[in-house]
Amino acid sequence: MIDTDGTPHGITRPSGVEHVVNVQLSTDHGDFLAVGYLDLDRGDEQIALVHGDIEADDVLTRVHSECLTGDAFGSRHCECGEQLSAALRAIAREGRGVLVYLQGHEGRGIGLLAKLRAMRLQADGLDTVEANLALGLPDDARDYRVAAEMLHDLGVRSVRLLSNNPRKSEALRRHGIRISEQVPLLIPPREENLSYLRTKRERLGHHLPHLDLDLAAEPS
């Protein structure tokens, strides 16, 4: 007999993460339990922020890729920092949920320095996909194995995934995460990131219907 994640029934799923520490964390968005993990395959240190009882079905979940420029410095080139804050607020309002913050995902997995080089190419006229490819890098190099293993360890049975990215949903499903719903996480665009968001929609398949309002407002 096979379980829903593909593991033979009665056999424990091997894990590539070590659950290292739990500590309470008070934030501007609410109180969370910070759960620290070590990725045994890559050596990366990872964290999940847990609010309420998540050993259940249909847990509101955000799997957030590290973005130093957006998350820490408030860059307007992307919407990452605003998505991070919005996700934490939504989880706190819900009364339960989890945010998995993934290190090693900077620049859709190409690293900080390569991301800055790609941003320079975008300033010269390339879009975000063209810039990565011009550097000889994939348009998206992220892997979600560790996120799935953290969610399994936390006892999450199925998630309502806060994401606009269908690739993320597909990747998590491949690693055994049941997704009952994909919940949009739409941030009003800025002049500085509208072109970037359009590229994410048109070339990477992100579900960003709110951009239609901006497109409709433009003269033909």
Rank of each mutant, 00 (worst) to 15 (best):
C67T: 03
C67P: 04
C67S: 05
C67F: 08
C67D: 02
L68F: 12
L68H: 08
T69L: 09
T69S: 12
T69D: 07
T69G: 05
T69E: 04
T69W: 01
T69R: 01
T69M: 04
G70N: 07
G70M: 10
G70W: 07
G70L: 11
D71C: 13
D71H: 09
D71K: 11
A72E: 02
A72I: 15
A72V: 15
A72Q: 10
A72Y: 08
A72H: 04
F73H: 14
F73V: 07
F73Q: 11
F73S: 11
G74Y: 06
G74H: 11
G74E: 09
G74V: 14
S75T: 13
S75N: 10
S75P: 11
R76I: 11
R76K: 10
R76C: 05
H77E: 14
H77Q: 15
H77Y: 05
C78M: 10
C78T: 09
C78L: 11
E79F: 06
E79S: 15
E79G: 09
E79M: 04
E79R: 10
E79L: 10
C80R: 03
C80D: 01
C80H: 07
G81K: 00
G81H: 03
G81M: 05
E82Y: 13
E82Q: 15
E82A: 15
E82H: 13
E82K: 14
Q83R: 14
Q83I: 12
L84G: 05
L84W: 02
L84P: 09
L84R: 12
L84T: 11
S85L: 09
S85T: 14
S85W: 00
A86V: 08
A86P: 11
A86W: 00
A86F: 04
L88E: 02
L88A: 05
L88G: 00
L88H: 04
L88D: 00
R89S: 14
R89H: 09
R89K: 15
A90M: 08
A90D: 00
A90V: 01
A90P: 00
I91Y: 00
A92L: 03
A92T: 15
A92H: 06
A92V: 06
A92P: 05
R93G: 04
R93T: 12
R93V: 08
R93W: 00
R93D: 09
E94L: 03
E94C: 07
E94Q: 15
E94I: 06
E94H: 07
G95K: 02
G95T: 02
G95W: 03
G95A: 06
G97P: 05
G97A: 09
G97S: 08
G97I: 01
G97N: 05
V98L: 02
V98W: 02
V98Q: 01
V98P: 01
V98H: 00
V98C: 01
L99V: 15
L99G: 06
L99W: 03
V100P: 11
V100Q: 03
V100W: 08
V100F: 14
V100R: 12
